[in-house]
Design a protein around this nucleic acid. Structure first.
Lengths: 251, 251
DNA sequence: AGTCCAAATTGGTCAGACCAGCTTGGCTTT
DNA sequence: AAAGCCAAGCTGGTCTGACCAATTTGGACT
């Protein structure tokens, strides 16, 4: 086979992948089977391994589906907007997810909560007061409060999700920055009141009230986050460019 | 090289990809170069094309970066999927979590959905119909439908959670059992109607309707699951053997 | 007409080879 | 001795041809 002496900015499987994608968009329907790899190789004038790499890349992009010993099938006529790159979502996305989930967790906790749960919540609250009285942040007890609430649902999946969101939040660089650059002391009474309201509603077995209290709490967090991020953006607005490697992707 | 006579649930490049990923997480830093393809092939006891496919898949997943004539470099230590590893709870817990989250996702999707999203949803639906017409299950298109819906929210955290829940569900042994022991054909028209109702509500930009449609859909799934688990418990509930994970798609 | 089995088809994998560009280390030159 | 230069070697990129196993299919047999 001949090569292109002038320039090879791309690996050839990328070219083939684009041609296959174009072919599909032009004249294939969903579910339809593509020609065999051997035929595609002949059609495009490349070797089978190259065709395989192209197909693999389109399969990873959610456009094709390979069924062993059967064929390659179209499952979408357009490349999926990389499903995988949801690595680092911002704190606001994270918070929105919490806003969807945690109020409902609180409501369920109000229904299913046991005395043991209430005791643990009270404990977490007491610890929070103690830490604040010491002039420290109460991240640990805060985390624990939300976790106990999730555990009160008796649903492991919800606990796991809740924990993941919390961790993703506290581990995000922006969150850390805020902790460093803001006077968190001003917010502490609010956090405390929020948690107490949630606790009371749950203990009173009032799902609606619990849900609302949690919603208010998360709204307060959102407001604080917005204020902080606004204050921060004034400080240094540059360097916000994302030098992170623009992952692979077919150009 | 030896082959596995018993069963090959996965393509070997996937196994190699996982081993490479594990190797990186264990003892590689970002920016570090991997051994040459030839060496990796020797290390893992596979051929170079297989290693190439594994590397390509990890590159598409944003974990590696291939530089021609230089080497393969680590750009992220975590693979995109399994950000949250949700395991160890039953399908009912999983489903309850979905019942909390997905209706709200549908509502948001109805508000924020773009034409491109609608097109992708329509495609997933078309594929589902086609697969059913072929007498096959439509797991792939089903998954895709729910993922596109999550993506419509523009919230990566929600996409990630949604995906995790789905995977945890389909990979659970119980779910597989049900697929094998039940006449899924009877349910197909219902699944199809459910999805169509969701699609129509989202496209009509009616959040309330979308949310309700999704709730109905998940209720139907729950009912089917209960019936199946009831039927199964009569047969035999032991024998929770863990067969090699034949990922999805049966018959 | 229905059933069953074997051949054809197809993706999955392997082996070995050559090419072109990047890297490196030794050599020449200053 | 330091600086620049060039060739040998790595490394990924690609090709060829082959064999395997599972699926699919079509014809032979019942």
């Amino acid at each position: 086979m001949l090569h292109d002496p002038p320039s090879k900015p791309e690996r050839s499987f990328e070219i083939v992948a684009r041609r296959i994608a174009a072919m599909i968009q032009a004249s294939y329907r969903i579910g339809q089977r593509l020609p065999a790899e051997r035929d595609l190789a002949k059609t495009f004038g490349v070797s089978r391994p190259t065709v395989r790499e192209a197909i693999l890349s389109l399969a990873m992009a959610g456009m094709l589906k390979v069924r062993s010993n059967s064929g390659v099938y179209v499952i979408s006529r357009q490349e999926a907007p990389d499903v995988h790159k949801l690595e680092g979502f911002g704190p606001f996305e994270n918070l929105e997810a919490r806003q969807l989930i945690e109020p409902q967790i609180a409501a369920i906790a109000a229904q299913r909560g046991t005395e043991a749960i209430f005791a643990q919540l009270a404990e977490a609250l007491a610890m929070m007061r103690w830490e604040h009285a010491q002039g420290r942040e109460a991240d640990t007890s805060d985390h624990r409060f939300h976790m106990v609430l999730a555990e009160a649902t008796g649903n492991g999946a919800l606990v796991s999700i809740s924990d993941s969101l919390w961790r993703a939040q506290t581990e995000s660089g922006i969150w850390q920055e805020i902790h460093n650059h803001m006077q968190m002391e001003d917010y502490r009474p609010m956090w405390r009141r929020d948690h107490e309201a949630i606790f009371e509603a749950v203990q009173a077995r009032n799902p609606r009230k619990a849900s609302l209290a949690m919603t208010r709490h998360l709204n307060n967090i959102r407001d604080a986050l917005m204020e902080a991020s606004k204050a921060k953006s004034m400080a240094k607005s540059t360097a916000t460019t994302k030098p992170t490697i623009s992952r692979g992707k077919i150009r």
